[in-house]
């Protein structure tokens, strides 16, 4: 009789214990469990790992990936994928370098980086939404376009950027939080508020969860798509600034590791690859996990060649686990 009416029983203590035993619980918390587990392993293997200095450098090293991951999360939550994110960042880096070499100030150079990356983002969004081409193909195309443009514009040569302000920015901070990490954290907090406290965020989840249902309620899913790719582009520009500040130069490098790691962090963070379900906190923990992995392997003097291998294994394990998500 109560097939319709009965509400699900509330979780009690016993229910929670049962949760811990289910593989779904592990799958949903894969990133944070992995982060804690890896930290324990590296702490026991290396005396340096759990020092303030090393934690500080991990957080700074993670900041670029966190910013890119936030953009990637918006796109994947809307049931898309942005393969161009790292190439877009590289184009932003080159735009920064060219503006700076022309004698523009830091602020103008930063704006140039964000503007160049945003153009690629908007292009992605318009092609996906209005051109009705699959996200995968569009962003694979713009990946090539952006990295090609970066090479053409820079003539394949790096431009060194010697700015006291930039060096001060990337080497200072508050307590153990370096400035680049503070920027990344601010981006993450704003992203969380936008996702969970605004109409746009709800509409993004609806678009990713069920495009038809979203459209039936009058939501313009095309506008949402353009918006998420634009956000991803703008954040790639922010990441470009952080990268220039860290490297002290504008290089037309491929940066493919950033692309793979941004997707990997989102998967690790429990975001559904078909959209509509996930958070910002999860992918950030995913990004931290990947950075800790690299950092720990370096501390243990494992050859750099093993790092992509380790990242790949972790990501595939996470994807396998995510199949068990509720």
């Amino acid at each position: 009789m109560n097939s319709l009416g009965s509400p699900r029983p509330r979780k009690d203590a016993a229910g929670w214990q049962q949760d811990v035993k289910s593989i779904g619980w592990w799958a949903e918390h894969a990133a944070i469990i992995g982060l804690i587990g890896l930290s324990i392993v590296f702490t026991s293997l290396s005396p340096v790992f759990l020092t303030a200095g090393n934690i500080q450098s991990i957080l700074v090293a993670a900041s670029i990936l966190i910013v890119l991951t936030v953009g990637q999360s918006f796109v994947i939550l809307s049931d898309g994928i942005d393969l161009s994110v790292a190439a877009t960042m590289t184009l932003g880096v080159i735009a920064f370098g060219m503006a700076y070499a022309q004698g523009a100030g830091l602020l103008v150079s930063m704006l140039a980086a964000i503007a160049a990356s945003s153009v690629i983002g908007i292009l992605n969004g318009v092609l996906v939404a209005k051109g009705r081409i699959t996200d995968f193909i569009v962003t694979l195309g713009t990946l090539s376009v952006a990295s090609g443009l970066a090479l053409v514009l820079s003539d394949g040569k790096p431009i060194s950027i010697t700015s006291i302000e930039l060096i001060n920015f990337s080497t200072h901070g508050v307590l153990i939080f370096g400035n680049p990490f503070i920027v990344a954290a601010a981006v993450a907090i704003i992203a969380h508020v936008v996702l969970f406290r605004t109409r746009f965020g709800t509409h993004l989840f609806a678009t990713g969860g069920s495009k038809e249902a979203a459209q039936a309620t009058g939501i313009s899913t095309a506008r949402i798509k353009i918006a998420v790719y634009t956000i991803s582009g703008v954040l790639a520009g922010v990441a470009a600034i952080l990268l220039v500040a860290r490297v002290g130069a504008s290089e037309p490098a491929a940066n493919t590791t950033f692309l793979l790691n941004s997707v990997a962090a989102v998967v690790l963070g429990g975001v559904s690859l078909t959209g509509g379900r996930g958070s910002i906190f999860g992918p950030i923990v995913g990004a931290l996990l990947l950075t800790v992995l690299t950092n720990g392997l370096t501390l243990m003097n494992v050859s750099q060649f093993y790092q992509p291998l380790a990242v790949g294994v972790v990501v595939i394990l996470a994807a396998l686990l995510s199949r068990f998500q509720k």
Partner: peptide, 18 residues
Amino acid sequence: LALVDDLTVWQNLFLNRE
């Protein structure tokens, strides 16, 4: 049944009328 599965009942009730 045009509802979004991963949103709550109240989010669906107010979808695009938040």
